[in-house]
Design a protein around this nucleic acid. Structure first.
Length: 924
RNA sequence: GCGGACGUGGCGGAACCGGUAGACGCACGAGACUUAAAAUCUUGCGGCCGCAAGGCCGUGCGGGUUCGAGUCCCGCCGUCCGCACCA
């Protein structure tokens, strides 16, 4: 998104690792694991006399027991099974969603990828999570929409064009084709019939239409603005795209330039975007807080300070914005930004001030400079009258710490109660007067030297305000100054309008024609899309659209006179601000959305992606939804009801003796004296194991999903990225971990096959059934809360219980019931294995179509419970009582325990605490 | 500087409202099977003492509340993330 990938930052740019193919998956039938014998014992890997290897491609659902042949089962072959089931799902169009389906809707969406060319583990994790939700909700009977598309405009395509002389379009579509194949190999339950690419004119045509509608509604403006100019990429960057004073892609020091730009008026919705955050109760608190801070609302007063000696041509007053009018009697000076008009007026005949202003501009942007910059000022020689006492004048400085972009570009300095003002005042000898005294402190003794007092308190040295609280003083000053007409209350936001103009080719053209006589004229809707020219060259820096005279020179749609197209394209964040809405009816040719359809599907019930989009993408999308509401293209305000931000996939790093990074595929491990050591597979040279880092090409700690899928299968990869770590935290990719996942795949396969041939009498049935239904209830609960790592743990527990059960006297009915539940529980995570097992169990249809089983309430509770018995808070014994035993009965049972009697030595306890179903504590 | 999150075995982590700390997995040790390996299975696995039964200690550190604290409160230490001259 925005020229980079919604998920890319989660993991890496792509680096291909060639992994030695592991033998465990791709063995030939017949050479496999020739366990033979009869019944479940064999399949569980019990040691039995070896017979000739027998293998079957798929067990006969009619019943293996009908055969007298030993029930040998070959290892589950993901390589064979996965494409087969993917084809079966596609064949039946299982995941294609019908808008007319009357069941309750559920819209699950993962942030769509930038088509960089290859998927990475971050994508695998992101899409595996979304797929679990999609498959689970489908099983729960919802009409699920789970689409996929491509955030296909952006700089990398232009860079590729420059470096490799390819057409950005060709490069992009080739990448899409290969990434689509990769995603399909993951077995995701996506509705590919709704696939969209934002670089497709059928998509951006509607975006242009909405741009014109927004313009019509006053939600788009054009103005000159100082912009962040990236001198390397030759483009404008949004504030959000400037990190530490550098371009977020190029890393170049950003310059300030004046350009005429198109803006989306996101500030029109500042208040609403802020207050509506409270309603987003299924968003992470962290993201809401980040957006809140970004919007940055503050309540204050705009106060006019009249110049004491108005000079010719200059304004008569300076207006400042303050959130602390209560401290007005502590004012010592006024400070204005270097870019303030008044500064320019004075500088016109003051070369020293001119020099100072230029100095300020130079140090203005770089973050490091701001951190270390001293508070510097320049006395203009002007003075202003205090708004509460015309006889009182204050000097006016130009100061480097005052920002023109915030408030009015002017502040009044109250050194006692603002640290910056204090630093400034101390430097220039302007003194300070404390006007707010901490409660309970002696005002006489309250002095400020180097640390400003910024808290609330009681007013002092403030004439009519004395004795008031901070809040009361705020009100008193506001009321008096408002009544006198020298001030007005003002709610100020930090949020600025969204500049969307980009001097780039590979983006959505802004549908405007500039006419010499009519000015900027909207392209008529009937002329849309304004399509990008096909033939472009990138042999010169800058925007190729500006050089394409044939494309650029067009008649004015209004007067027919000579005119030129707008050559700027839209920020790619615009593309990703409404794609979720387009997915609801991507086939529409004459409108961006179908109002009835979009309103039924939106908001997205569960949106999943990286935290790096906490502000930019998510705020823009929230704005867009509101703008679409204003223009009639949708009836909802919030795009995403539920948001989940998942962690990255990280990996150990490795370095050889020369300090060069070594990719994981070239390393083997051994444990010597309990210590894990790494060696190079070829040279055997020792390798230093480094810190765990985000997967990145530069550190070579990248694992390619393709290789993992080829070696282990998609299910193993999916299972692994969902296990272990909580989904919002980073997951550490490790070879051992993925092998553990692969082992579990085989274990499930063995267990299901063994269950199918169980022959026990059924004495262990109840235990097994309880385990199965308990796992079912637990997994269900944890999927709903997206706690996939816990789901995995419950499933392991069930698998262990089934293994135990099959070893005991368990009936085939109970074994297959438990196995069936196990299969349904793994189905959202490992859908291919689930299908294969489904066949073994002889269940009808496909696992992907099966409805979620109901947990039997009776199996979820025990008749008896074992409670820990504490004595003085330390556990000393256990007591087993009926589930519904009352406190008295529990107490009696506890006191009857031999261990307890021994400790009590005949004395009664001083106090007995019984928490039913929990614990017993005796105080002696 | 401001705001936020977090700190639990060798590792990833679990522990719902304060109620058996360490579920589940990984790694590791011992064993079975095997000519051997792989695979699989059994078993152990927070620390200390003990043959064992059992006991003591233990959730970053120091206090507190409570019958009972990983969980709540106060004060530190550390790590990570976001914002950053926002008046």
């Amino acid at each position: 998104m925005g020229g980079t990938d919604l998920v890319r930052a989660l993991s890496c740019t792509v680096y291909v690792v060639r992994r030695p193919k592991l033998s465990c998956v791709a063995r030939k039938p017949g050479s496999l694991h020739p366990l033979t014998g009869s019944g479940a014992d064999m399949l569980l890997g019990r040691n039995v006399p070896r017979l000739a290897p027998i293998s079957r491609r798929a067990p006969d659902p009619a019943g293996p027991m009908t055969s007298t042949a030993p029930s040998a089962v070959e290892r589950y072959n993901a390589k064979d099974a996965e494409p087969r089931w993917q084809a079966a799902w596609a064949e039946q169009k299982l995941f294609e969603t019908d808008n007319a389906d009357g069941r309750p809707k559920y819209y699950v969406l993962e942030m769509f990828p930038y088509p960089s060319g290859r998927i990475h583990m971050g994508h695998v994790r992101n899409y595996a999570m979304g797929d679990v939700v999609a498959r689970y909700k489908r099983a729960r009977g919802f009409n699920v929409l789970h689409p996929m598309g491509w955030d296909a405009f952006g700089l990398p395509a232009e860079n590729a064009a420059m470096e490799r002389k390819v057409n950005p379009r060709d490069w992009t579509y080739a990448n899409i084709a290969s990434m689509r194949d990769q995603l399909k190999a993951m077995g995701l339950s996506l509705d590919w019939s709704r696939e969209i690419a934002t670089c497709d004119p059928d998509y951006y045509k509607h975006q242009q239409r909405m741009f014109l509608d927004f313009l019509d509604k006053g939600l788009v403006t054009r103005r000159t603005a100082k912009v962040n100019w990236d001198p390397v990429d030759h483009t404008v960057l949004a504030n959000e795209q400037v990190i530490d004073g550098r371009g977020w892609r190029s890393g170049a020091l950003v310059e300030q330039r004046e350009l005429t730009q198109w803006f989306f008026k996101i500030t029109d919705f500042a208040e609403d975007l802020l207050t509506a955050l409270d309603g987003l109760d299924r968003w992470p608190e962290k993201v809401r807080l980040m957006q809140k801070n970004w919007i940055g609302r503050s309540e204050g007063l705009e106060v006019r300070f009249v110049l004491a000696q108005p000079s010719a041509g200059a304004a008569e007053s300076v207006t400042v914005y303050t959130t602390r009018p209560d401290t007005l009697f502590g004012a010592r000076f006024l400070a204005i930004a270097a870019d303030h008009p008044l500064a320019a007026t004075v500088a016109a005949h003051n070369p020293d001030l001119q020099a100072f202003i230029e100095e300020c501009r130079r140090t203005g942007t770089a973050q490091a400079a701001i951190d270390t910059a001293e508070k510097l000022g320049f006395d203009t020689g002007l003075t202003v009258r205090h708004p509460l006492d015309p006889a009182w004048t204050l000097p006016v400085y130009v100061a480097n710490f005052v920002l023109m972009e915030y408030g009015t570009g002017a502040v009044f300095g109250c050194p006692a109660h603002d640290q910056r003002d204090l630093d400034f005042s101390n430097k220039y000898g302007l003194g300070n007067v404390p006007v707010v005294c901490p409660e309970g402190q002696d005002p006489e003794a309250f002095l400020i030297t180097t640390t400003a007092y910024v808290e609330d308190g009681r007013m002092i040295n403030s004439r009519f305000l004395n004795g008031m609280t901070t809040a009361e003083a705020f009100e008193a000053v506001a009321q008096r100054l408002e009544a006198e007409g020298v001030a007005k209350r003002k709610v100020q936001f930090r949020l600025r309008d969204w500049g969307v103009s980009r001097q780039r080719y590979w983006g959505c053209p802004i549908p405007i024609i500039h006419c010499e006589s009519c000015g900027p004229v909207p392209v008529p809707v009937s002329d849309l899309p304004v399509q990008l020219p096909e033939e472009v060259s990138f042999d010169q820096p800058g925007n190729p659209l500006e050089r394409d005279q044939a494309w650029r020179n067009v008649p004015c749609p209004q007067c027919g006179g000579p005119a030129r197209r707008e050559t700027d394209t839209m920020d790619t964040f615009v593309d990703s601000s409404w794609y979720y809405a387009r997915f609801t009816a991507p086939w529409l040719t004459d409108a961006p959305t179908d109002r009835a359809v979009v309103d039924r599907w939106l908001p997205v019930d569960q949106y999943i992606g990286g935290i790096e989009h906490a502000i930019l993408h998510l705020l823009y999308a929230r704005f867009f939804m509101r703008a679409m509401r204003e223009t009639g293209w949708a009836g909802v305000s919030e795009p995403f009801a539920g948001l989940f931000t998942q962690g990255m996939v990280v990996h150990e790093t490795y370095k050889d003796a020369t300090g060069a990074w070594v990719p994981p595929a070239e390393i083997r491990f051994s444990t010597e004296e309990g210590e894990r050591r790494a060696f190079h597979v070829k040279t055997q040279a020792p390798i230093a194991i480094g810190s765990i880092e985000k997967m990145s090409k530069s550190k070579k700690n990248v694992v390619d999903p393709d290789d993992i899928i080829a070696s282990y299968g998609a299910d193993t990869a999916r299972w692994f990225v969902l296990s272990d770590s909580p989904p919002e935290r980073d997951v550490i990719w490790s070879e051992e971990g993925v092998q553990g996942a692969a082992r579990f795949v085989q274990k499930v396969w063995r267990l299901v096959n063994a269950a199918q041939v169980a022959t026990g009498v059924g004495a262990a049935d109840l235990t097994l059934r309880k385990a199965a239904h308990r796992a079912l209830a637990a997994v269900q609960d944890d999927i709903e809360r997206l706690r996939f790592n816990r789901c995995v743990a419950h499933i392991y527990t069930l698998a262990n219980a089934l293994e135990d059960g099959l070893r005991g006297p368990v009936s085939r009915a109970a074994a297959t019931e438990a196995a069936g539940i196990l299969v349904q529980l793994i189905a959202p995570m490992m859908p291919h294995l689930a299908e294969e097992c489904w066949t073994v169990l002889g269940r009808p249809g496909l696992a992907a179509q099966a409805l979620w089983p109901e947990a039997e309430a009776g199996l979820l509770v025990e008749d008896e419970v074992t409670l820990p018995v504490q004595i003085n808070g330390k556990k000393r014994a256990d007591v087993t009582v009926p589930r519904d035993a009352d406190a008295k009965a529990v107490e009696a049972a506890t006191l009857a325990l031999e261990t307890v009697q021994k400790i009590l030595e005949g004395k009664p306890p001083r106090k007995v605490i019984v928490v039913p179903g929990r614990i017993v504590n005796l105080v002696v």
